[in-house]
Amino acid sequence: MEILMSIVIGALFASSVYLMLSKSLLRIIIGTGLLSHGAHLLIITMGGLKRGAAPLLGEKAASYVDPLPQALILTAIVISFGVTALFLVLAYRAYQELGTDNMDEMRGNEAND
């Protein structure tokens, strides 16, 4: 399972990097979304999969899965949402102000070189 998940994670990362390297703003944002999915799965896979019950004491199980990666991911999910939201608004504003979503046309101001 871990090896299969590793391959899935690799695929998520590869596709997100590919999207982030493209020139279109929207594809870059989608790329960051995929990247965070990949990162979350990576963290939980690193902690080991299905080694016991859900980390709830009410289960009264002999062993529980590692709760620490889950706490980390929970934080990460919320943060990645914040980032996605900010990116979206930024992209929207950039598109409005600059009239383009092409990263090549959004180079730093030449006059400041």
Binding site: M5, G10, A14, V17, G47
Partner: peptide, 26 residues
């Protein structure tokens, strides 16, 4: 580049599963 990143991540993930340096603090 993206396939390279993906491959490195996959290898890293497998490696982290296969090499446990110390016990979990869980």
């Amino acid at each position: 580049i993206s396939v390279g990143v993906g491959a490195v991540i996959t290898l890293m993930s497998i490696s982290s599963h296969s090499n446990k340096m110390f016990d979990s603090i869980a």
